[in-house]
Simulated scan of single mutants.
Amino acid sequence: MDISTLLIFVPACFALNMAPGPNNLLSVSNATRYGFRRSCSAGAGRLLAFMGMIALASAGLAVVLHASELLFYGIKTAGALYLFYLAWQLWRAQPGGEGAPAQASVGWWRLARQEFLVAAGNPKAILIFTAFLPQFVDPNRPMAPQFAVLGALFLVLEVVAMAIYSWMGARMRHWITQPRGKRIFNRSCAGLLAGAGLGLLLSRRS
């Protein structure tokens, strides 16, 4: 893998990382409610899910997902239902209860699990890894080391994107000081998450 390939891969990959998908929206919401540091650390769940997807793409196991329509739609439906569940939780959240005591009661594990399930419940992500990463792999060289390098770069750029979205959420946290403003923000995020779930539910295999 030469430098010219990486110079093309990095900006193209970062564009995918920065796309306003469900996980990035979740980072904004978590940062608004629990702070920048908690939101960023919870992103470890997302990274774990993506590591598994990259491993599947590298091993060629994602071909099973391409071949099995039932498996694809099963994962997709589960992922969409979970997004609807998160949207419902946000819609019903009480803005007055988002102070320090509420932050302390929501553990890192719960937020990281949310990030993991949102990422893992999107089978299109596996297909992106299967279709996107191989474009930058030289078939005349060993495949595994190239996938390892590309996968590591993807995860690093994902951390950068996650930090940017969390920072945006933390800034909004200072702006939204009144219960009414928090309620509007929560319900806006709920609507966007529900829209993402609907889009996932209606999506087709490429």
Rank of each mutant, 00 (worst) to 15 (best):
P22H: 09
L6H: 09
L81K: 04
A80H: 01
R141Y: 11
A57L: 04
L47C: 07
G197M: 05
P101Y: 10
L150G: 00
G169H: 05
R173L: 07
P139Q: 04
V149M: 05
R205E: 01
R113Y: 13
S4W: 07
L153W: 02
A44K: 04
L133K: 03
L133M: 11
P142S: 06
A49E: 04
C189R: 03
A161Y: 03
E115A: 10
F36Q: 02
E98Y: 12
C40P: 03
N23G: 02
A57V: 01
Q103H: 07
S206T: 11
A120K: 12
Q178I: 04
I75K: 00
T130Q: 09
Y165S: 06
A196Y: 01
R204W: 15
R33N: 15
K76G: 01
A62K: 02
N140V: 07
P123N: 04
L83M: 11
M18W: 08
Q146Y: 09
F136D: 10
P22E: 08
G21R: 05
W88M: 06
S68C: 04
N24T: 00
Q178Y: 07
R92N: 14
A194W: 13
G191R: 13
L56H: 06
G74Q: 05
I3G: 10
L16R: 15
A44N: 09
G96F: 10
I176F: 15
L127I: 10
A78F: 05
T130N: 07
L117D: 02
T130S: 13
Q94P: 10
A42M: 05
F147K: 06
L65G: 09
P95L: 14
F147P: 02
A59F: 08
T130W: 04
N186I: 01
V160D: 08
P145T: 15
V28W: 03
A170F: 12
A194G: 15
Y73V: 07
D2S: 14
A152D: 03
L86T: 11
P11F: 14
A100V: 13
R46N: 01
F116R: 00
G45L: 05
W91Q: 03
A120R: 12
L153M: 09
P22M: 08
G21H: 02
Y34R: 11
A59G: 12
L201E: 08
L117A: 01
A19K: 02
